[in-house]
């Protein structure tokens, strides 16, 4: 176990000053997610334009440093991507958190990959994996527009 790997500078900084922590005006897709074990919650808002490009993405909610940083980095990376690209990034991130040692997607710049890899520290803390993945699962739900509330305990 290594706390320094979990609480890297980037995580602490994004946790303290989360990007896109607001509500997108005229959003056309959204979903709520919660972690009933800790009471954390997140609401992800998306604005997909006619070309199916993410014109804006934002989130509201509260949570630990890991979950806030993860949502912050996620919204930063997804903005401007097409919905298919977004899905590829989500799969890549969740695959990395679950089992893959590295990120594979060619859509991501090296800088972006470095940022996302900062979240890989949670792999050593099984109870904290959900903190890192909640906003991503909520984003999937928003994109699929299935109206389901995401819960880490389903």
């Amino acid at each position: 176990m290594n706390l320094k790997e979990l609480y890297q500078e980037i995580i602490l900084e994004h946790g303290k000053n989360p990007r896109n922590l607001r509500k997108t005006e005229n959003f056309n897709k959204d979903a709520k997610g919660n972690n009933p074990l800790c009471g954390d919650n997140v609401h992800v808002y998306l604005k997909l334009n006619n070309q199916r490009k993410v014109e804006d993405i934002s989130f509201e909610g509260s949570g630990c440093a890991i979950s806030m940083a993860s949502a912050s980095i996620m919204t930063d990376l997804i903005k401007g991507k097409s919905d298919n690209e977004a899905k590829e990034i989500i799969d890549d991130f969740l695959g990395m958190i679950k089992e893959n040692p590295e990120l594979k997607s060619s859509i991501l710049e090296e800088d972006d990959k470095t940022k996302l890899m900062c979240l890989s520290g949670v792999k050593q803390y099984p109870m904290r994996v959900k903190c890192a993945t909640l906003s991503w699962h909520t984003l999937i739900s928003a994109m699929e527009d299935d109206g389901k509330q995401v819960s880490t305990e389903d």
Binding site: L3, K16, C64, A65, I66, M68, Y125, R128, C131
Partner: peptide
């Protein structure tokens, strides 16, 4: 203030 309880618990656990 400024630290979520889950982060506190993880750090204390160490």
């Amino acid at each position: 203030e400024g630290v979520h309880p889950h982060d506190i618990a993880t750090i204390l656990d160490e």
